[in-house]
Simulated assay, not measured.
Amino acid sequence: MRGDLLRCGGGGREWGWGSPASLGMYAIGLVGVVLFILQERRMGDAALLPLRLFRRPVFRVATLVTVIQGAGMFGAMMSLPLYLQIVKGATPTQAGLQMLPLTLGIMVASLGSGTVISRTGRYKAFAVAGLGLMAAALFGLSTIGAATPLGVVMAIAFVIGLGLGASMQTLQLAATNDVAPQDIGVATSSATFFRQIGGTAGTAVFLSILFGTVGDRIAAAVRSAMATPSYVAALAQHPEFAQQLANGGVDVNDTSFLAHLDPVLARPILDGFAGSMTTVFLVGGIVLTVGFALVWLLKEKPLSDKSAMEQRSEQEALALAH
């Protein structure tokens, strides 16, 4: 069987990383970022995102880690449902329900960390622990395969949720606590903005890795399976599928055929998908490990016991007094 009989379409295949179209998109993005920075610099304090905020070390580190966290978070949240639907055969609704442990983890960690932070005023430990849990969980997902019990996958998803719940709002708290009262709104919105930027980039890169490797992984798995008597016997019982392989392979852009395919014939395809997804999770774990290393640089400033409105009123009163 030739290696090109099982390929998947999509951007990961049609546009390589070094293709003219991709290079053009990189150039457009770079120009857009430069123009945005120049415009924000020209607007000064009236800018949507005043650049002076990045001179503050806590805000700068929190923002950088937020971008990395967003990449890992959205990469996992986009890839895990694909694993559940394609490899485990879940419907979209079932996959959504199977992701509930992740949501539960977010709720438990958010409520728990919020309660402790409000009582102690200490928050850095939650950011560190959250990034560490997320990185460990993605490394855990990089070991799963087609035969991994669903309970194990859901348990790892719960750990991802714990990491997200412990670190996501904590990083935002650190950023807003480091700025002047009049900049708290900007700091809050910028945390969401940069998390989405990281998530957009992470989703694009991770799905590109997935669709860029899955064809070769499936082809290798099918070639290996063809050396086993059980697979050869199953092919003999399904000549239409054997003919499909001989005529150019299966279209893995539409995996609905797997639900009706002989399990023996479907197994190498599922193994190929699982292998590609473990690569995605491994890359995500490495990305979040970088974030885990950087979050240690976050300086923990004492939390203010006054609201932004009270702090601003005090500043205005001091300004009038002088």
Rank of each mutant, 00 (worst) to 15 (best):
V222N: 05
Q196D: 12
T228H: 13
F193S: 10
F194T: 10
T192I: 12
G199Y: 02
S208M: 12
T192P: 09
A225E: 03
F194W: 07
G202T: 00
D183A: 01
D183P: 04
A220S: 15
G215M: 03
R223Q: 13
T200M: 10
A225Y: 06
P181Q: 02
M226E: 14
A201H: 09
G198N: 03
V186F: 03
A204H: 03
G199R: 01
A204N: 04
M226H: 10
R195T: 04
I218P: 09
R223F: 12
T228M: 14
I218Y: 06
S189Y: 07
A219T: 02
T203Y: 10
T203M: 09
A220K: 11
A227Q: 14
D178P: 07
T192Y: 13
A187H: 03
N177Y: 07
T228P: 10
T228L: 10
Q182Y: 11
A225L: 05
A227T: 15
I218T: 04
T213Y: 09
A174M: 01
T176N: 12
A187G: 02
F194H: 06
V205W: 05
S190K: 02
L207Y: 09
T228W: 11
T228C: 10
I184N: 05
T192R: 12
N177G: 05
T176G: 08
A221V: 09
A220N: 15
S189A: 05
G212A: 02
S224M: 12
S208L: 12
V179N: 04
P181A: 07
N177Q: 06
D183F: 01
T176E: 14
F211K: 10
G202W: 00
D183S: 07
A219D: 13
G202E: 00
G215I: 06
S189K: 05
T192C: 06
T203N: 12
V222Q: 05
F211I: 06
P181C: 04
A191D: 09
I197A: 11
M226P: 09
I197C: 07
V179Y: 01
G212Y: 04
A220M: 12
T200V: 12
G212S: 02
A220F: 09
A201W: 15
V186G: 01
T192H: 12
T213N: 10
A204F: 01
S190P: 08
S189E: 01
F193P: 11
R217S: 13
T188D: 06
V186W: 07
F206L: 14
N177C: 06
S189Q: 07
Q196S: 14
S190Q: 11
Q182G: 10
A191I: 13
A204Y: 04
T228G: 13
G215N: 00
G199A: 00
V205Y: 04
A220P: 11
T203I: 08
G215C: 01
F193T: 14
A221E: 13
R195W: 04
T203P: 02
T213F: 02
F194N: 05
Q196C: 13
G202Y: 00
V186N: 06
A201C: 10
F194P: 06
D178C: 08
A219G: 07
I184V: 14
T188Q: 03
L207F: 14
S189P: 03
T213D: 09
A180H: 11
G215K: 00
Q196M: 15
G185P: 05
L207G: 15
F206A: 13
